[in-house]
Design a protein around this nucleic acid. Structure first.
Lengths: 199, 199, 199, 199
DNA sequence: CATGAATGAGTATTCATTCAT
DNA sequence: TATGAATGAATACTCATTCAT
């Protein structure tokens, strides 16, 4: 029964995807230590045992979720932007606009950010060292910053510091979105001002 | 002969203070769920039971530490500053300078900030609602922002949003200090740029 | 495939009943403070954690067991007896006979009595006040005593005092059965003599 | 300073006696496991450490208290009574009268009885086996019972069973006195009826 | 001697993981 | 495969005992 086999495989993939998706938000809101498997399973709508069919352990599940977090989708978009033949100021304005729009709409984005923050709090070395600084995301941002500094639109300072500052603010508002009920979102100009001399 | 009453009282105060002090850093680094009482006691250098003489439970201890976090010392300094007969720009530069200096030296300050962040992650209503926005710290900052907007030195935007942004960045770097080994601290100008039109 | 809902429910009922049954004897013999959860679980033949699936705490378990203790089974039998159209003397003789027979055979009966005694020693208000005196058991007994006093077969004294004396002796021998290895059981005539003028 | 030496000794004796006295009632009401040293010390009005100057351990203290319980005072009075040249019926009436009077007045008597009962509930072999049945108290009582059975005033039954029954009822009312707030004390005739054919 | 703060072995309780159905 | 009842190692908390003052 090859047909049934494939169908089975499909179902497996679906269940697995559902677990990953639902767990990401739950872990993001509750943290690793603060998440009980029993609660998580209830939240997803499956039995506790089912989780262990798809993932070896709670830690394994978290690791996989965390891996998703560093997906390359964002990087790709940024790579395109950085190669456009426009001024750094324009690039930063565009980038800031799209980030703020995404923050406003996409809760999973906030979750991903939150998970990255959780990692700081956790002892366990889920990720192979914090490679954030060597990440493509940072390197691309630094590139734009350098361009801007040459063009005179970006403030002085080492590019790595400024890139870190910029993405730090993004993190900050992702966390606010996820955890605080009342807050006022900053504008894309506010974000851009982290880098731009005179926004 | 009985230990003198005063001496006993003294010892109690000292031990209690020591526990609070040492626990703050430990909780800040490890989180509530991630802190084992046995480890904490070892870290402080006392027996496990001693903790329970002074605090009813792990949660009670955390609550008390958190309460310290919202101490009024910072508020007082800011209140003085805001009443000085100088321009808002000057005030913001002074404030930013003193904050960055403090971040650089005072690890307890970073711990206090981290604990505030932990609170967001915890379910339990340790604090009686998030009164941050009504806090004096925010109100004083908003006052300076309004002054600056009238003077033309501060960017446009609702004062509450800008105050929240400003302190958010402070939080961000307190967390970086506490949790990341390698990072570059922003300058006080970088911080001031959150508010100032042209720093 | 999920375990059928009914089967699950069944298993839960069975386990719960087993825990209650086995705990009653254990608590009766060892007292509340003298019972370790680890020992109790071993005695029942389950894991420690299992106890906490069914009961919120050691105290909760004890409370539930104690509630069983005041079951109405005994009351029903006594109600029937008290309504029979026979002399009070006959009723008392029958009652005493059945009680002594039960004491001889039924260890759970002794356990129930012992638990009631334990309650006296415990601070905690497990039961909602000692309503023993208003209990149906006492009221029915008092009825028979009154009948007997009118018929001249029962000794003088307030019925409540005599009923309390009568059941007190029953308690006494239930405790002896449970806790002492060597003792001589009294006869039903000995018991009846608590009430009867000339047995 | 021999004078001071003696005085010291005196104080020691007094403190020791106070601890024993106050502890007896406390243990009687709360049981061994249910008594916390901290509470007990507070109740007596001394420091926790002081207890350990006079007694090696909680168990040691309890053992000493329990030993007091089996004092020979009661036995002596009963011995005198049993040797009087009067009928067994008279002896039993006198004995019952004095017991009930004592129960009414002397709370320590009730405490002693309660402690004996506690012993049944405790695993630890504080006492060298339950020698109650070989005790002089029982033997003297049995003697009177035998005399009564020959005289025809005492009911049939093995003397040991009847003696046990008789003292059991005394225990019962000592416990009632100590633990229940509302109850009606039986009369000395009620008590005597345990043994007497026609009281 | 007297004290009560400090201790840690012992006990109650939680929760990730397993497994019979 | 899916389930959730059962497990026990890990963790929070208690309390008899010690000891510096």
């Amino acid at each position: 029964m090859p047909k049934s086999q494939e169908r089975c495989q499909e179902i497996r993939e679906e269940t697995r995807a559902k677990i990953l998706h639902d767990s990401m938000l739950y872990f993001a809101r509750n943290g690793f230590a603060g998440t009980r498997i029993s609660d998580l399973a209830k939240h997803i709508g499956i039995g506790q045992g089912t989780l262990y069919i798809y993932f070896k352990s709670k830690e394994d599940l978290f690791r996989e979720i965390f891996a998703l977090t560093n997906s390359s989708k964002d990087t790709k978009a940024l790579k395109m932007l950085s190669h456009l033949p426009i001024s750094a100021k324009k690039k930063i304005q565009k980038l800031s606009g799209s980030i703020m729009a995404r923050l406003a709409q996409d809760e999973l984005f906030a979750a991903m950010v939150a998970l990255n923050t959780q990692m700081m709090f956790e002892k366990k070395a889920f990720a192979s060292a914090q490679t954030t600084y060597q990440s493509e995301l940072y390197q691309l941002t630094e590139g734009i910053i350098r361009q801007g500094q040459q063009e005179g639109s970006v403030v002085a300072g080492t590019p790595v510091k400024l890139a870190d500052y910029y993405w730090g603010v993004v993190y900050l508002y992702a966390l606010k979105k996820l955890f605080t009920t009342e807050y006022e979102m900053i504008s894309s100009e506010d974000l851009a001002r982290v880098l731009l001399r005179d926004a």
